[in-house]
Design a protein around this nucleic acid. Structure first.
Lengths: 392, 392
DNA sequence: TTGAAAGCGATACCAC
DNA sequence: GTGGTATCGCTTTCAA
């Protein structure tokens, strides 16, 4: 193992003492950064402004009880000195002011939120207003994610967690239940959530029911849904909504799953080669829908005439395929903003306006975006040409 | 504006004082988390082990000068109590032990590293060994990213930064130059880097030169490269390498750019509609290559016979398209590991083994992966069927 | 080998 | 209004 810059503490007790020749702490016992000059502290500001540190703190935090002239002077001086409060010192007293989203990222595609980064970008804008920061980390498994959250909570590193892509029997849920940590669940409200949790959900139950009706109206009688990673709660809910809508019209419904593009492709292959192959396939995300198009092309199944395809989450690329993909809107930006709000609430922001806080937010996705990949089923009648080009 | 949970300090001096009715700090002046019981501190461990806090600290950090029996007892007690060092307290003295990667993420595809998360996952494994954490943040513009890094450095929030997707005239570079912050540059070594910087680069100069030779050998005489976001240094280098290799064979080379899938599609359309259209297109990333295939299909340009396509970065999806895409390997995992190593170096890890540290690492991509999207140019001879299916 | 105590930087009480 | 000062949890001298 590597001699560490920062010892791992009792996680590895066998840690070797560093070489005596260079006993000084690598990052410097006196925290002045790597070779940098000392950064100003609140004391410097106080001295320069000719007041005490208490006044500086009050002035900087916009507290009442500071003369306006003093406040102004302090602010100016702080600015001139380029002063910013040290996160560590601040956290030491007030607790951490940062939340973390630990993304379970196993490299394989198929997760609906292709990139949590979009979510975070939107959320950060809202959080900035509240002086909260949101950091992203990755873990390759749910268990590891749970482990990290537990650890970081114990280290008082983060004040709250954002959880996406909840699975059934999710270790993260178990971990968070044993912690008094505020949390925001994205995508699927967990049953019996503690009071310190908030949840933000898309109304995809409605959206997928709508997809079912849409396909029924087109005249499809055999519909399949192709899902990615097994066990995603949001996916199950969507499949249930779709299945339910179809069942109520007496339509055949079948769910298949394949995690990662390769297995998804295999699943599509199986689906399309079956004797009673579906006339419509609905996917859980955008990427998998592309896979369906690819495989259909290889098997010479004409989309949309022999097969309709609906992408479960819209994305820019859905407009560019041939034919372009009919898709369920996926409003990442609104979702992110809602996550930001929820996080502020979970952190006990409350605001001045009482407890009208909604611990659980549901966003509507808006109506299905119909493009070229869906049509009434007309087996074996394959026109040629590129009609798809003109669709929307 | 929202009444904030945590005041913004002098960034917004007009911050309103919070309502007097609820004067207590939202997250509790006594940091005991939201409703949670008090977490153990080093004092608790010391008391329980019957020693002083100094001994606990030494024992936990694996320092010499602690009796083995004492050390063992301390470790056991700490474990039983579920104690973990508070990040804030620790950072307050020793400086932050976390690095940040601020991803410039404008939603539009086209950046080569589709998701920095893959990078980070790989890097984190290495960093764990060194007791360093890597957090990801997003910014919608380069300038904002620069702003955040400046701010967070001033707040002593992070000990180092990882920068990806460097652009020409990059504000982040300027910002970091004025800071004494250690940094790791990924993808393109900046000119005249300070001693506190490391860089990790893919040897794509060689890879793209190889692509040039490959296409030349196939007999192509007109080649175009399609790039995404303008100004990416790594992209320029790649284009230069490709152009150079082609020029030395007297082959026509043209570079086009289109940021985001829509503009990329438009650019491809222009390219393929031109009178002297190229017989081969090389892209910078995987997504854009898919766009090229889509547009070619719409314009009824047969790939690979009328048009060869090479993806600048391989990805799982490249295997699934019809035809499958010839691509330059993109070893994210190795890249991430190298970034981890570089970060440890940049943080002054040094290790016990002297200064053989390489401030600059170059990873070879390995040879081009040839699949079905490339062939000798044979204009207007379009076989039909799905030969592409069997390619690799 | 161990203990006492001085910081690290910011906040929030309590006097004046 | 403003100034002292204890405090957060941990690291690290300096003595014993």
């Amino acid at each position: 193992m590597v001699t560490t810059a920062r010892p791992n503490h009792h996680e590895d007790p066998d840690n070797q003492p560093r070489k005596d020749a260079a006993p000084a702490s690598p990052r410097g016992g006196r925290p002045r950064g790597a070779g940098g000059r000392r950064r100003p502290t609140i004391v410097d500001v106080a001295r320069a402004a000719g007041v005490s540190t208490a006044v500086v703190s009050y002035a900087l935090n916009g507290r009442r009880g500071v003369a306006d002239t003093t406040r102004e002077r302090v602010l100016r001086v702080a600015d001139e000195l380029g002063w910013r409060p040290a996160t560590a010192a601040r956290s030491l007293r007030a607790g951490p002011g940062t939340a973390a989203l630990v993304a379970v990222h196993d490299g394989a595609a198929g997760s609906r939120v292709a990139s949590p980064l979009d979510l975070v970008t939107a959320a950060s804008e809202v959080l900035d207003e509240g002086g909260v920061t949101l950091a992203v980390h990755t873990a390759s498994t749910v268990d590891h994610a749970a482990h990290l959250m537990r650890r970081w909570w114990a280290e008082r590193r983060y004040a709250a967690f954002v959880v996406t892509g909840l699975r059934s029997d999710d270790a993260r849920l178990a971990a968070l239940r044993h912690l008094p940590a505020p949390a925001v669940m994205v995508g699927c409200p967990p049953p019996s959530a503690p009071a310190t949790w908030c949840s933000v959900t898309l109304d995809d139950t409605a959206a997928f029911a709508q997809v079912g009706e849409f396909l029924a109206d087109l005249g499809h009688r055999r519909v399949a849904m192709l899902t990615g990673a097994d066990g995603l709660l949001a996916t199950r809910r969507r499949a249930a909504a779709l299945g339910g809508a179809l069942a109520s019209e007496g339509i055949d419904f079948h769910a298949a799953s394949g995690h990662g593009v390769d297995r998804a492709a295999a699943a599509v292959g199986t689906l399309l080669s079956s004797a009673s192959r579906p006339t419509a396939v609905v996917t859980d995300d955008d990427v998998t829908a592309g896979v369906v198009l690819d495989v259909a092309r290889r098997l010479e199944v004409a989309v949309p005439w022999e097969l309709s395809v609906v992408a479960g989450a819209d994305a820019p690329a859905c407009r560019l395929t041939t034919p372009s993909l009919t898709a369920v809107p996926y409003p990442v930006e609104r979702l992110g903003q809602a996550v930001g709000q929820a996080l502020l609430e979970a952190l006990g922001d409350g605001g001045a306006d009482g407890d009208r806080s909604s611990r659980s937010t549901t966003l509507s996705t808006g109506g299905l975006v119909v493009r070229g990949s869906t049509a009434p089923p007309e087996p074996r009648s394959r026109p040629h040409g590129n009609e798809g080009f003109l669709n929307d």
